[in-house]
Design a protein around this nucleic acid. Structure first.
Length: 294
DNA sequence: TCCCAGGTAGATC
DNA sequence: GATCTACATGGG
């Protein structure tokens, strides 16, 4: 990886195993938009614009080397060797080859804990475009105004403190439906400190999942997403409808209970389960692994 | 009109 | 324990 500043923009070239588009669009992030060839990302309290220039070059607009090194290398997980991760996964299981090759530019981002918690509570029984809409709406309702791009205003995802005083009614107005009381519970458990990032980070495996499941509306799947995408738990393996489908197709050949899939994944993929999960999820969703398969 | 979406809580057996 | 279902909302 090679960093070079040109006119206030940061050109990052010779990046391996990274595509900005795949990384954002693989379903782990909801607070971004695509504007022509450019991605507009809302994170770390700013609007970040980025573009894929060539196979191994990405430009980040209005970005210093210092800021990039301080915040964004970590955010996009660019300090990890994905070549090693892929090699390790493939040595355990050749069946992953197609998914890994197809989605080879995916990195598992390190996003904000509170934002992931709220976003994945919203995600249940919803499609990604609608999750994104609600994340943007919540940011507009409670978050800090960050500026305009092409005349459109953008807002940071709110902090727990900014959401203090929110009501279930507020969430219903934002079209969150039956998730409204769940969101209310999550905000308040975080505000009280009953649920906090520090304690969550200190826990491992099943324990961090159990810890997060104390929140109403957080079950196995949501807890695993929060752990994987914001707590650096790369053994987490969220089992959702797409993972269920593709795992049934690849490994079981029949309808299989989510808990059995989860157990199998833990055993089979181990510490790199989260990466395998993400390659498979994105691959399955993109290829539209048949919905109506018996 | 019906089915599905990055599921979960609560009821029922 | 292991299943069954209701839950808002939007899109195909």
């Amino acid at each position: 990886m090679n960093l070079q500043v040109k006119n206030n923009d940061l050109w990052v070239d010779e990046i391996k195993d990274f595509k900005i588009g795949q990384t954002l669009e693989c379903g782990q992030s909801f607070h971004f938009e695509k504007n022509k060839d450019e991605y507009i990302i809302i994170a770390h309290n700013r609007i970040l614009r980025a573009r894929q220039i060539s196979d191994d070059t990405v430009v980040f607009y209005d970005m210093s080397k210092e800021e990039f090194e301080e915040k964004w290398i970590r955010y996009f997980d660019l300090d990890r060797d994905y070549g090693e991760i892929k090699k390790s996964l493939l040595s355990k299981d050749k069946k992953l080859k197609e998914a890994i090759e197809e989605k080879s530019g995916v990195r598992i981002m390190n996003q904000d804990f509170f934002e992931m918690l709220i976003s994945f509570i919203i995600s249940q029984n919803k499609q990604i475009p609608h999750i994104k809409k609600i994340v943007f709406d919540i940011s507009k309702r409670w978050g800090t105004y960050l500026g305009n791009v092409d005349g459109k205003p953008y807002y940071a995802f709110p902090t727990p403190r900014q959401m203090a005083g929110c009501t279930i009614e507020d969430f219903i107005k934002l079209k969150t439906g039956f998730r409204a009381p769940y969101l209310y519970d999550a905000v308040n458990k975080v505000l009280s400190g009953e649920i906090n990032e520090k304690d969550a980070r200190a826990l491992d495996g099943e324990n961090v999942i159990k810890y997060l499941c104390q929140i109403k509306g957080v079950g196995e799947k949501v807890a695993n997403c929060v752990a994987l995408f914001s707590l650096d738990k790369r053994d987490a393996f969220p089992v959702d409808v797409w993972i269920k489908r593709i795992m049934e197709k690849m490994y079981f050949g029949k309808e299989t209970d989510k808990r059995i899939i989860s157990e199998f994944a833990k055993e089979h993929f181990g510490e790199y389960g989260g990466y395998a999960q993400q390659y498979l999820f994105y691959y399955a969703r993109d290829e539209k692994i048949s919905v109506d398969k018996k």
